[in-house]
C-alpha cells in the first residue's frame, strides 16, 4: 500500500472499520515512524473515543454496583498492584493506539473542559510520544530478533546449499579429470595412429610417384625426365657401327624399376618388313624391345618392363625381320662403347 492509501485508511482505523490485514498494514506503517499518519491517527482516535458520549445515557441498574463491588476479589489484585504510583507499564502492543484521548482539565476546574480543544492535543502528543517510543522500541527489538532469527535460518540454509554445491562441484571435477585422462589416452592413441597413417601415406606417396613414373608413357620427355631423376639410373652411350657410322644413341636404365629408355639419332630408315631390335648382352643376348625408324633422324624406345639385365655390360641394336627375333640375326647398327 502506498502512503496515500495508508493515510486514507486512518479514519477507518479509528472507527474500527478496517480488515485485520489492513489494520496490521497501517500499524506497521505507523511503527515505521510516519509522522503525518501518526498525527492524523491521534486526532481521529480522539474523535472516536468521544462517540459514546453522543448516546442517550442509560443508567445501570442500582444492583449492578453492589454485584461488582462484591465480586471484586481483593485477593485477585496481583502483585503488580503493589507499586505506589501508577506504573507506566505498557498496555498490550497495538492496543495503546486505541487509548488516545484528549486530556481534560483537572478535576478541580469547574470551567468547560478544553480537553477537546486542539491545543490540548499537544499534551496527549507528549504522553503519546513517550508511549510510542517505548512501544516502538519494544516492537523494533522484537522485530530485530525475528529478523536475526530469520537471517540465521537463511544463512544456515545458504551454508547447506553451498556445501551441497561444493560436493557437486568436487564430483563434477573428478568426472572432468577422468574424462580428461580418457581424452589424453585417446589423443596418444590417435597420435600413434596418425604416425602410422603418415608412414602409410608416405609409402603410398612413394608408390604413387612410382606409378606416376609408369604412367608418363604418353609423354616420353616426362618419362625421360623421371628416369633421369632416379639416382641409380645407368647411362650407356651407343655408337654407330660400320653400317651406320653417323648414328649414335644413348640408353638409360633403372634396374630396380626395370625401365629402359633408348634415344638414337641418324639411324637409317628401317625398310619395310624389318625392325630395329635392342639387345642386352651378358653371356648371351637378351631382347629388350623393338622399334622402327620411319623418317626423321631421331627415334626413341621405351621399355617399361625389360627383362632382367642386371649384369649386362653390352647393349646393341640390330636390324631384324618384323616382330623381332629371339636371337640377333641381322647386322648390328648401334653398339655400347663400354
Amino acid at each position: 500500500m502506498t502512503h496515500e492509501e495508508l493515510e486514507e485508511s486512518v479514519p477507518l482505523y479509528a472507527a474500527g472499520a478496517l480488515d485485520r490485514s489492513e489494520r496490521q498494514a497501517l500499524e506497521a506503517h505507523l511503527l515505521s515512524g510516519c509522522v503525518s499518519c501518526h498525527a492524523a491517527l491521534k486526532e481521529f482516535q480522539s474523535v472516536a473515543a468521544l462517540l459514546p458520549l453522543a448516546l442517550s445515557p442509560i443508567t445501570p441498574p442500582p444492583s449492578l454496583k453492589a454485584t461488582i463491588m462484591a465480586e471484586r476479589n481483593p485477593a485477585s489484585i496481583p502483585a503488580e498492584a503493589a507499586t505506589h504510583e501508577p506504573v507506566k507499564q505498557s498496555l498490550e502492543p497495538g492496543e495503546w493506539m486505541n487509548h488516545l484521548f484528549p486530556p481534560v482539565a483537572p478535576a478541580q476546574s469547574s470551567s468547560l473542559p478544553w480537553a477537546l480543544g486542539f491545543a490540548t492535543f499537544l499534551v496527549v502528543a507528549v504522553g503519546g510520544y513517550v508511549a510510542w517510543s517505548v512501544s516502538t522500541e519494544r516492537s523494533v527489538t522484537t522485530s530485530n530478533i525475528q529478523q536475526l532469527e530469520a537471517s540465521l535460518k537463511e544463512t544456515s540454509t545458504k551454508f547447506a546449499n553451498l556445501q551441497r554445491e561444493a560436493g557437486d562441484q568436487a564430483k563434477a571435477l573428478a568426472e572432468l579429470r577422468n574424462e580428461l585422462q580418457q581424452r589424453t589416452d585417446e589423443t596418444a592413441e590417435t597420435k600413434e595412429q596418425l604416425t602410422q597413417r603418415e608412414a602409410e601415406l608416405e609409402e603410398i606417396r612413394v608408390q604413387l610417384s612410382q606409378r606416376g613414373n609408369t604412367r608418363t608413357v604418353e609423354t616420353p620427355q616426362d618419362e625421360l625426365a623421371t628416369l633421369l631423376r632416379i639416382p641409380n639410373a645407368k647411362t650407356v652411350s651407343l655408337a654407330g657401327s660400320d653400317m651406320a657410322k653417323q648414328a649414335a644413341g644413348f640408353l638409360l636404365y633403372d634396374s630396380r624399376t626395370q625401365k629402359v629408355w633408348l634415344y638414337s639419332v641418324n639411324l637409317p630408315e628401317s625398310p619395310a618388313g624389318t625392325t630395329y631390335q635392342l639387345w642386352a648382352i651378358h653371356d648371351k643376348p637378351v631382347s629388350i624391345g623393338t622399334f622402327n625408324m620411319d623418317s626423321g633422324k631421331a627415334a626413341h624406345l621405351l621399355v617399361k618392363k625389360a627383362p632382367s639385365f642386371v649384369d649386362a655390360k653390352t647393349f646393341a641394336v640390330s636390324l631384324e625381320p618384323s616382330g623381332g627375333r629371339p636371337q640377333p640375326t641381322g647386322q648390328i647398327y648401334l653398339l655400347s662403347q663400354s
Binding site: A49, I68, A81, L91, H99, L100, F101, P103
Partner: peptide, 29 residues
C-alpha cells in the same frame, strides 16, 4: 458485560498508562 469490564479494570489497573489516553478512554476501549 460491565461486571466483566470492571473486574478487568480492577485487575489490570496497574497496567493503565496515562500517557496513552485518559482513564475513561481506556475503559471505553
Amino acid at each position: 458485560l460491565l461486571q466483566d469490564v470492571y473486574l478487568e479494570v480492577w485487575r489490570k489497573v496497574s497496567r493503565y498508562d496515562v500517557g496513552r489516553g485518559t482513564p475513561i478512554a481506556w475503559m471505553i476501549t
